[in-house]
Structures are given as structure tokens and as C-alpha cells.
């Protein structure tokens, strides 16, 4: 039971006894091959969720299960093999002196044999489109390239879950696109679940499910369409909604009948097209 799942059961967390709760009674499940986006404004507790998932922090209350294992001091090394993480700052997670060394770092930690490492380095660098940079030093790479290397490093250990903790926040639009394309491809090609913690609305619309965090609690869960159709509520807790979603609202106010919440330009335009033919 619980195979290839991450499960939070009534999890509460705070850094110290005299400090306020960062997370309160948080429960959710992330299933196999899902892409779950976690959103919420700064301080909503969303990054803490990531750290709890691979045992960088432990909850005071509740239980976290990864792939059927409860996360605790005894299991963290196995848990970390299953849960790969990519952090926000591209520089501060690059350990190796070259791209190749960095991809190897995680595998070395898990004691993989050298032949397997060489094979996996090739594989994972090609999966993120960085094969030509094997010998490159980190300070010669762009932010987007460094983050792709970080993803390759995670893939090399072949985890069942990958968490991107605001991994695109420090990148320019080009870097952001690179990462999202990479992630898309990887998610299609491999059996893994993806958890993206983000502010980027565009990323959110591409996910299969959204968890909205507010003040340490799960505020809402659902498909991107469901979540964005409740925009008034999102704005209440200081979150933005995509352009098409706003436009759709104004259109409805103008009396244009729209039946479903559009997630992208095309969806909205198609509906406008149909409604025009009816009228």
C-alpha cells in the first residue's frame, strides 16, 4: 500500500516550540505520475512541505509516508533516494567542479558503481539536453543551464518523485522556458511524479493538480481549472490569476456565455467561436 505515493497525514510543523506553526494539520496524497503544483504567497508554508518530504525537516505532529515508508531518521537515506530536489538558487546547489562531477555527486553518495555512474551521466545529461557540456565549469553556464544540470543530477539517481522548489524563480524567461520544456519531456518519458512549488501561473496551468497553501494550511485542492474558477478566493489570499482567466471573468460580466474556465488563449478563443455561432 502507498507504493509510489507521497502521503501527508495531519502534518504540523514549527521550527521551535515558542514559534508559530508553519504548517497546521496538512493532509494530502500525491499519486504516481502526477504533476502537482503547490502555490501560495511567501510564508504560506509551501517550501516547508518540500523539506519535509525528503527528511530535511521532521514534523512535530502527524506522519509523512514516501513510497510506503514513514519518513524518519532511520529511513531518510532511502527516502532521499526516492525524492529528488531542485532548489531555487542555481549556484548554491552545484557541488562539482564540472558538470560531470556534479551529476555524479548524488550517485557517489548512494555508493553506485563507477560503470553505472558513467552510463547514467550520459543518459541524464542527454535527457536535459546538456550532453555537450560534460566538462564545463559551473561559472561558465547560464542559470537555466545550471538548473538543467541540477535536474540531471536528480534524474541520475532515478527517484520516483522530483520536487522543484521555486527552481525557476531566479531565471530569466528564456531559462524558465528551458526548464519547463525539460521537465515536461522528462515527465513524459519517465515514470515519476512531479511536485512544483511555484509562483509562476503558467507553470500552474500545466500541472494536473494544484494545492493552494495559505497560512500553513491546505486552502484548496483541485485541477487548475477548478482552482482558477475560484479567483475571487485566490485574490483574497493575495494570489494572482492568469490573464485569460481574468478576461473570461470580464467577458462573463459583459454577458458572454462561457461554460468552462479557460486555461490558455486557445481554449478561450474556441469557446468564443462557438458562442458566436450560437448567437
Amino acid at each position: 500500500m502507498g507504493e509510489r505515493q507521497v502521503e501527508f497525514r495531519n502534518v504540523s510543523f514549527r521550527y521551535q516550540e515558542d514559534m508559530p506553526w508553519v504548517l497546521r494539520d496538512v493532509s494530502f496524497t500525491i499519486g504516481p505520475d502526477e504533476w502537482v503544483a503547490v502555490i501560495g504567497h511567501n510564508g504560506s508554508g509551501k517550501s516547508t512541505i518540500a523539506k519535509l518530504m525528503n527528511g530535511l525537516l521532521f514534523p512535530q505532529e502527524g506522519e509523512i509516508l514516501v513510497d510506503g515508508m514513514p519518513v524518519n531518521e532511520k529511513t531518510i537515506w532511502d527516502v532521499r533516494k526516492q525524492v529528488g530536489m531542485v532548489f531555487q538558487n542555481p549556484d548554491n546547489q552545484f557541488v562539482g567542479t564540472t558538470v560531470k562531477d556534479d551529476v555524479a555527486f548524488g550517485m557517489e553518495n548512494h555508493g553506485m558503481p563507477r560503470e553505472l555512474m558513467l552510463e547514467r551521466i550520459k543518459e541524464s545529461l542527454s535527457a536535459v539536453g546538456m550532453s555537450d557540456y560534460e566538462q564545463q565549469e559551473p561559472h561558465r553556464l547560464s542559470g537555466g543551464q545550471k538548473q538543467r544540470v541540477a535536474i540531471a543530477s536528480v534524474l541520475a539517481v532515478s527517484p520516483k518523485f522530483i520536487i522543484l522548489d521555486e527552481a525557476t524563480a531566479m531565471l530569466d524567461p528564456k531559462g524558465r522556458k528551458e526548464i519547463m520544456n525539460t521537465v515536461h519531456r522528462v515527465q513524459e518519458e519517465r515514470d515519476l511524479s512531479l511536485i512544483t512549488i511555484t509562483h509562476d501561473l503558467h507553470e500552474v496551468t500545466q500541472s494536473s493538480r494544484v494545492i493552494v497553501m495559505n497560512k500553513g494550511e491546505v486552502w484548496m485542492q483541485g485541477s487548475p481549472r477548478d482552482v482558477f474558477s475560484k479567483k475571487e478566493h485566490l485574490q483574497e489570499i493575495g494570489l494572482d490569476t492568469p490573464f485569460v482567466s481574468k478576461l473570461a471573468d470580464h467577458l462573463k460580466a459583459e454577458g458572454v456565455p462561457l461554460t468552462r474556465e479557460p486555461l490558455n488563449h486557445q481554449e478561450l478563443l474556441e469557446e468564443l467561436w462557438t458562442s458566436r455561432s450560437i448567437m
Binding site: H250, G255, V256, S275, S277, M279
Partner: peptide
């Protein structure tokens, strides 16, 4: 434009844009 909605961008707000689109859509193609 590919959907037959020919509108020029002239700095409209979203609300203004919605009005123009609504006019075109309701105006019966």
C-alpha cells in the same frame, strides 16, 4: 485574429477589451 476576432491593441485594460470582444461576439459574427 485566426478566430475572426479582429481587434487592434491600443492600450486597453482587460475590462475594456472584454467589452470590445463582447460587442463583436454578440454583434453576430
Amino acid at each position: 485574429r485566426d478566430y475572426g476576432l479582429d481587434l487592434e491593441y491600443e492600450g486597453q485594460t482587460i475590462a475594456e477589451l472584454a467589452k470590445e470582444i463582447a460587442l463583436k461576439v454578440k454583434g453576430g459574427g
